[in-house]
Amino acid sequence: MNQETAEPAAAEPACRFPHFTVLLSSTPRGARLARLLADAQLRSWGIPSDAARHIVGELAANAVTHGRVPGRDFRLTLYVVDGTLRIEVTDTRCERLPQLQQPAPGAESGRGLLLVDALADRWGVREDRFPRKTVWAELRCAPPEPAPTGPGPDGSFSQGT
């Protein structure tokens, strides 16, 4: 059973933020659907989705591959607070927490968290109430402040980006 919410999470204007959550089957189809739904939601919010789509794909694939418990779903949650997109994937297997590690040379898998680490500004794992864990990643949505274009301490000028 899939459930989704695409409404602001709070009723007060000061606490409103874009929020999306969906419960998906722990199957390869569910992982693919997570990526497609995240992409559509981010586009509707006007947020660039390339890096986020890859992160969602990797975290959902890990939930299906390593966090799967037959008959239990995984949850994808997206929300934006203060210009930061937070991606969370929650599954129902917490005895093995994901760790960043180098795959063996020639291995056909094992690079997902390396990709998440390269694309995300921050990421981590949170143990929830047994038997759940949430793997999360954050991406800055707002462009960084431009660099100053005035003379530097040595009198030379720098270019703003």
Rank of each mutant, 00 (worst) to 15 (best):
L85R: 03
L85Q: 06
Q101K: 12
I47A: 00
P143C: 04
W136Q: 10
G110F: 09
W136K: 04
P151Y: 00
G150Y: 09
G106R: 13
V135H: 05
R129P: 02
V56R: 00
A52R: 04
E95A: 12
E95R: 12
D73S: 15
P143I: 05
G112I: 05
Q99Y: 00
R129L: 12
Q102W: 07
R111M: 08
T77S: 09
P103M: 08
W123G: 00
P143L: 09
P131V: 08
Q101D: 02
P148I: 14
T65Q: 14
K133V: 15
V135Q: 05
P103A: 12
E88H: 01
E138L: 03
P143T: 08
R132M: 10
G155A: 05
T92N: 12
G67L: 11
E88Y: 05
R96F: 11
P103H: 12
I47P: 02
T90G: 00
C94G: 01
I47T: 08
I87Y: 02
C141E: 10
L139P: 05
R43E: 15
L97T: 15
R129A: 13
D91L: 05
P151R: 13
P48L: 02
D82E: 15
P70W: 06
P151V: 07
A104V: 14
L115Q: 05
L59H: 04
L76H: 04
R53D: 13
E58I: 00
S109W: 12
V125Y: 06
S156Q: 14
R86M: 10
I87T: 02
R93S: 08
P144G: 08
P151M: 02
L100F: 07
L42A: 11
R96D: 12
Q102T: 15
A52Y: 09
V116H: 06
E95N: 13
A137P: 01
D39G: 03
L76K: 02
V89K: 02
F130A: 13
V135C: 11
T90E: 03
R129M: 07
A52L: 04
R86A: 03
G124Y: 11
P131G: 09
D73L: 06
E58C: 04
P48V: 04
H54T: 12
C94T: 09
L100D: 06
L42P: 00
L115K: 03
H66I: 11
V81F: 01
W136H: 06
A40N: 09
E58L: 01
W45P: 00
G110M: 11
T92V: 00
V81S: 08
W45G: 02
G155E: 06
A40W: 00
T84C: 01
A118N: 02
A147Y: 13
P70A: 11
W136Y: 15
F130H: 13
P144F: 07
N62F: 09
T84N: 03
E138R: 10
I55A: 03
P143H: 07
P146D: 05
P103C: 11
L97E: 10
A142D: 15
W45Q: 01
P153D: 07
D128C: 11
H54F: 01
P148K: 13
G112F: 07
